[in-house]
């Protein structure tokens, strides 16, 4: 049986910018070790909610805990216990593979000894020995993304947030990246992921769909397809978001 230990709890989350309600009373839990798909149209309010969950922005109201820490008062603890990766923000192009690992590991407070061990292991796991001292700008995008994810979890966080991690990559690399997501979840790290590829929504344990600041659906992909009499998640999404 799957553990149902909650790693994120969101109760009545509201975020307003002036008159505009970006997050309109969100309620959901995310369980330890699950892959949680956070879907929605552009402008639906996903980024606003992710920023709050990462401790980067304060909600207007609501009770929200991430990894057992409060998003109002314990943002520093939250930041230590999460990892974050996106297509837009990840690695420094003008640093080498090793320098990026050392930099992020240092930021997360690992000791020099730990950094040496971890970086050797990581480079070996990713089979990037020959590229240890190559600039990030010189390695293929698929590798960058795998490296970025590995670095985002180098401090063994409780949760990792992946914001559109697979945009633009080739279909094989995209699938290899999902292997890495499954590995991450199997290590007990909760994966909170956004994507515009609806086939990837099928790979999540549970999926929420946001429309105009509200969560309009949250369930397993299988249940959602039953509820909306849909052949696939693309159909579900189109029915809800159009």
């Amino acid at each position: 049986m799957k553990e149902v230990e909650k790693i994120i709890t969101v109760k009545n989350l509201v975020k307003k910018f002036g008159d505009f309600i970006a997050n309109d009373n969100l309620n959901f839990d995310v369980y330890k070790g699950e892959i949680f798909g956070f879907l929605g149209a552009n402008g639906a309010g996903k980024t606003t909610a992710i920023k709050i969950l990462c401790g980067l922005s304060k909600p207007t109201s609501g009770d929200i805990e991430v990894g057992g820490f409060d998003v109002y008062k314990q943002t520093e603890q939250i930041k230590k216990n999460i990892g974050y990766m996106s297509q837009k923000f990840s690695l420094y192009e003008d640093l080498t593979v090793f320098e990026n690992i050392r930099f992020y590991a240092g930021i997360y407070g690992l000791t020099n000894k730990e950094i040496r061990e971890k970086s050797d292991n990581l480079i070996q796991q990713l089979e990037m020995q020959d590229f240890r001292d190559s600039l990030i700008s010189a390695i293929p995008l698929g590798w960058k993304q795998k490296l970025a994810l590995s670095i985002a979890i180098i401090h063994q966080p409780k949760i990792v947030f992946l914001d559109e991690p697979t945009g633009g990559v080739d279909p094989i690399t995209r699938r290899q990246f999902w292997d890495l997501i499954y590995d991450t979840a199997n290590k007990g790290i909760t994966v909170f992921v956004t994507t515009h590829y609806m086939d990837e929504a099928e790979y999540c344990n549970r999926v929420s769909i946001m429309v105009d600041g509200k969560i309009v659906a949250l369930d397993t992909p299988k249940r959602l397809k039953e509820i909306y009499h849909a052949a696939n998640m693309d159909d579900v999404f189109l029915q809800l978001a159009r």
């Binding site: 149209a41 552009n42 559109e164 945009g167 633009g168 515009h196 999404f237 978001a241």
Partner: peptide, 13 residues
């Protein structure tokens, strides 16, 4: 050039 990258499924259609 990639007008639909990063665009949601509805807007893409």
């Amino acid at each position: 050039d990639e007008p639909t990258t990063g665009v949601d499924a509805v807007s893409r259609k």
